[in-house]
């Protein structure tokens, strides 16, 4: 297959507005009351992607590797806010989420760059970094959420262990494993069924850009392994930091009440 990208021109994009129209008509017909949300979401997506496209064009042309890494760092900061926002009751949740996401991203991107698996150019580092940040954010978010629930629901179990002289770390060990496992299941499951249920994003993008599928899968394999590693590192780091944040200096478990 020769590279012959079938990328829609602006006229094509304008024609695709028809699809939003179909969604709006269908929702009005079904009286879902979602017309405003649909139109607003479509508008937001257009404006956001336009802005990101313009920014990335400038970034790819001028920023170099340092600029790309700064961009990825910005994504880590935003991802940390999002992950921490799901567990508002946890102490020190934002630093935990930033370090958790950051550790997963730094480890995986670092290995890929040092081993020369990916090119150290912005047009590679930024999209690959985006995928890693997203995977790390999900794992961090799930780990923190699960541990917040455990700290609330399993309080009698944890206090029974503390009352026997165990440290906070020892009292939480069985629950930490459970929390990390829960956080890693989505990454493991999507790795297991990759290519069977849906063609994954990186591979789809390359095929759309005209790359042979047998070549595109090489990239996808790297991406899947990278996402597994990112999720594992982020979940483990976030679990340990959450565990430390849940106890005070006399190893008393903070009272955490999940948001209503």
């Amino acid at each position: 297959m020769n590279p012959s990208p079938q990328i829609p021109d602006w006229l094509g994009v304008a024609a695709s507005v028809l699809l939003v129209g179909i969604a709006v008509v269908a929702s009005s017909w079904a009286r879902l009351g979602l017309t405003r949300d649909l139109v607003w979401a479509a508008l937001r997506a257009f404006v956001q992607l336009l802005a990101v496209g313009a920014l990335l064009t400038i970034l790819f042309d001028r920023a170099g590797l340092l600029g790309a890494l700064a961009w990825v760092t910005g994504m880590v900061v935003i991802a940390g806010f999002v992950a921490a926002g799901r567990s508002p009751e946890l102490p020190r949740r934002r630093p935990t989420a930033w370090v958790g996401v950051g550790a997963g991203v730094a480890t995986t991107l670092g290995v890929l760059l040092v081993l020369g698996v990916i090119e150290p150019t912005p047009s590679v580092v930024v999209p690959v970094g985006g995928m890693v940040v997203s995977g790390s954010m999900t794992a961090t978010n799930l780990t923190m959420r699960r541990l917040a629930d455990i700290a609330h629901q399993q309080r009698p179990d944890i206090e029974a262990r503390l009352a026997l002289g165990m440290t906070g770390g020892e009292a939480m060990t069985p629950h930490l494993r459970q929390g990390v496992k829960t956080a890693l299941l989505p990454a493991i499951d999507s790795t297991k069924v990759v290519g069977l249920i849906a063609l994954p994003g990186a591979m789809t993008g390359l095929i759309l850009a005209g790359v042979e599928p047998i070549v595109a899968i090489r990239y996808q394999i790297v991406v899947m392994y990278m996402l597994l590693a990112a999720a594992a590192v982020s979940a483990i780091v976030a679990a340990h930091l959450t565990r430390r944040a849940l106890f005070d200096d006399a190893d008393r478990l903070y009272r955490v009440t999940p948001p209503a």
Binding site: P156, D157, A160, L162, A163, L164, G165, M166, A250, D251
Partner: peptide
């Protein structure tokens, strides 16, 4: 040391939790 103290002064809760 708080851990040594809790071994010396052991609390049994109202509802038993099997660990």
């Amino acid at each position: 040391d708080v851990h040594a103290l809790r071994r010396r002064v052991s609390l049994v809760a109202q509802r038993p939790t099997m660990l």
